[in-house]
Simulated scan of single mutants.
Amino acid sequence: MTIHSLYIFDRHCTCVYYQDWHRTRRPKPAAEGGLLPAVSQDVSAKSATGSNPNSNRNTLTSNTGIVVAVNEQPTPNQLLQTTGPPLTSTGLAFDEEAKLVYGVILSLRNMVRKLSGKDDEQFLGYRTNTYKLHLFETASGYKLVMLTDPNITDNLRLVLRQIYLGPFLEYVTRNPLSTMDSKEFGIDNEYFRQSIHNMVSGLTGFN
């Protein structure tokens, strides 16, 4: 089971979280101002000194006031970068990629509803010859999107639902320091990121 990446979009169509695993072609960092801070250090716009201004990990709080890591231990993504195959670029900035992902979902969801003639008809995902997209949408408008190998037969929508009912509710919704529906920051919480990594890497057949 090869899982490539996970996106979370809020009800404003904004990408508020990103994480990847077995992805050898990563997009270029987002353009300055094109991505909310704290969505992902791997794809955030770099500062003039070449480092992410939101990546100070030797403090107890981030810019959002949420507790993050207190040492320089690498994140799961950084560990995979050093042990996996060398990463290349898709040539596309991440903010543009996120817009394309959301645009495809929105277009196909509208098409499914129009063809079925039912407003409650659900669009669950699609498959191409190179990847498979899985979608879970919450009642509050959050969309959890996972891209995987096209040969996966399991419906990972259930996994996305578990991510929402588990780590998302625990570390984001119920976190008194987290500002929900914010247009200023992404989901700046390393406990949330680590919990998702543990859950996904624990799936049967995860490579």
Rank of each mutant, 00 (worst) to 15 (best):
62 S>H: 06
32 E>V: 15
45 A>I: 04
48 A>L: 08
17 Y>C: 01
78 Q>N: 10
28 K>H: 06
62 S>C: 11
8 I>L: 13
47 S>D: 11
58 N>D: 13
26 R>E: 05
43 V>F: 08
68 V>H: 12
43 V>E: 03
17 Y>K: 03
37 P>V: 06
66 I>A: 00
28 K>Q: 13
16 V>M: 01
69 A>S: 15
39 V>M: 09
45 A>D: 00
29 P>Q: 03
23 R>P: 03
65 G>T: 01
9 F>T: 09
69 A>L: 04
49 T>C: 05
35 L>A: 09
14 T>H: 09
56 N>H: 09
28 K>E: 12
48 A>R: 09
8 I>R: 09
60 L>G: 15
63 N>M: 12
53 P>A: 08
61 T>Q: 01
39 V>F: 01
74 P>I: 12
21 W>I: 05
17 Y>F: 15
68 V>K: 13
44 S>N: 05
65 G>V: 07
39 V>K: 03
59 T>P: 02
26 R>T: 14
32 E>D: 04
40 S>Y: 05
41 Q>P: 02
57 R>G: 04
67 V>D: 02
25 R>P: 04
16 V>T: 08
16 V>P: 00
75 T>N: 06
38 A>R: 05
44 S>L: 04
15 C>A: 11
67 V>G: 10
44 S>G: 10
53 P>K: 11
75 T>E: 08
77 N>R: 11
30 A>T: 02
16 V>E: 00
10 D>P: 01
42 D>L: 08
42 D>W: 01
36 L>E: 04
56 N>E: 07
12 H>W: 07
78 Q>A: 15
75 T>I: 05
61 T>I: 11
77 N>H: 10
12 H>N: 14
72 E>M: 12
63 N>K: 14
34 G>T: 07
29 P>C: 08
35 L>M: 15
40 S>D: 14
47 S>L: 07
28 K>G: 01
36 L>N: 06
31 A>C: 10
62 S>I: 03
61 T>Y: 11
36 L>K: 00
24 T>Q: 14
62 S>D: 13
13 C>N: 14
67 V>Y: 04
63 N>G: 15
64 T>M: 00
44 S>D: 13
22 H>A: 13
31 A>K: 10
14 T>D: 09
23 R>Y: 02
21 W>S: 09
25 R>H: 06
74 P>Q: 03
49 T>A: 06
62 S>F: 08
11 R>H: 13
64 T>F: 05
32 E>R: 15
65 G>R: 09
49 T>P: 08
56 N>Q: 09
55 S>I: 12
33 G>K: 11
38 A>V: 09
24 T>V: 15
12 H>Q: 14
77 N>C: 11
16 V>A: 00
44 S>R: 01
64 T>L: 00
27 P>I: 12
45 A>H: 08
42 D>G: 02
73 Q>D: 07
64 T>C: 10
34 G>S: 09
58 N>V: 13
47 S>T: 10
40 S>P: 00
67 V>R: 08
35 L>N: 01
52 N>L: 10
32 E>P: 00
57 R>S: 10
74 P>S: 07
59 T>A: 07
26 R>Q: 12
9 F>L: 06
